[in-house]
Amino acid sequence: MATIRDVAKLAEVSTATVSRVLNKNGYVNKATETRVQEAIKQLNYLPNDVARSLFKGRSRTIALFVPDITNPFFPELARAVEDYSNHHQYNFVLCNTDNDLEKEIVYLNALKQKSVDGFIIVSNSITEDHLQRINAPVVALDRVFSTKVSSVTVNNREGARKAVQHLKSLGCNRIAHIAGPEKISSAGERRQGYLDEVGDEDWFKPEYVVQGKYDFDTAKKAAIQLLTGNPEVDGLFAGNDLMGAGVLNAAASLGISIPDDLAVIGFDGISISKIITPALTTMAQPIYEIGTRAAELLITQISSENPTIKNETLDVQLIERQSTGERAGEYEG
């Protein structure tokens, strides 16, 4: 493998001159630069990015931390971050953290040692103290973990309220909720939005709220128990689309007709929600816009001498599909 010395020898210049050409740092006359570029091409020389990043303190690399790469929401989010990063000549690293603080800290320390320029993080456990030790720009995504860190989120609580309002408008009189993990802020906000709409109803029962852990299998089991024990439930709001798919599967196993006997609505707007049968009505997040905006905020912070903190909240949109459909009757409040 060719080295910088080999390039310098072939171009008949010093290694310092080759370095200036590679880093576009300092004056090199055009004829000399052309000789160096031709030598690089002839020798198929590849610069040592690690060495260059250590020298410059920059690697033009950003990292995205997600808690569960098997949840389709996060790969769709990652694609947006990667596209924007690559378009602006930044490399992209994806880290799956399993919602494990220790794993997050190991990733943070390891990547900072490699001069990663900044981080986009989905986390409910990282604190300001952890980030101060890293001393690199950070943007929080999907949830907020510090007022001193820029963030991009959606209005989870209002979106959940609209989901329940939609079920009511279809004539649903007993509406249940499959909730995400209690420690995740977005799940708590969606649960609260549901309670805003049903908490004062005389028909509401605490057992109408069950835990689905943002997971298909867990949600399916929870839905089977919920619907078996409470056959009067005719509307169900799932805290994310993955759990919504689990509810549809549970209903099929119980012989419950969707949407005639049970109307179901999810939250997120992931691609799978429109290809499952029946297609899932959802409160869709602008996933690609969220990821793009987070990458834009981070790269701006990396490039700025005096970065400003921005907290942006985007709206969600109701997308009606087969899992709600047309239902007879009116909601009787």
Rank of each mutant, 00 (worst) to 15 (best):
A2F: 12
I4F: 10
D6S: 07
L10V: 11
E12A: 13
T15I: 14
K24H: 11
T32F: 07
T34P: 00
A39H: 09
K41R: 13
N48V: 01
L54A: 02
F55S: 15
F55N: 11
L64V: 12
L64K: 11
F65S: 09
S85K: 09
N91H: 15
N91T: 08
N99F: 06
H130K: 04
Q132P: 00
R133L: 06
V138I: 03
R143I: 00
F145G: 01
S146K: 07
V152T: 02
R157M: 15
E158P: 00
G159F: 08
V164P: 03
G171D: 10
P181Y: 03
G188I: 01
G193E: 07
L195R: 03
K205W: 04
E207L: 00
Q211Y: 07
A219L: 07
A219K: 04
L226Y: 09
T228F: 00
G235H: 08
A245Y: 07
L248Q: 05
A250P: 02
A252H: 12
S253G: 01
L254C: 03
G255A: 02
D260E: 15
D261M: 00
I270H: 03
I276K: 03
P278M: 05
I287V: 14
A294C: 03
E296C: 04
L297I: 14
I302H: 09
E305S: 15
N306G: 00
P307N: 08
I309W: 12
Q317I: 10
I319G: 01
E330G: 00
E332K: 14
E332Y: 02
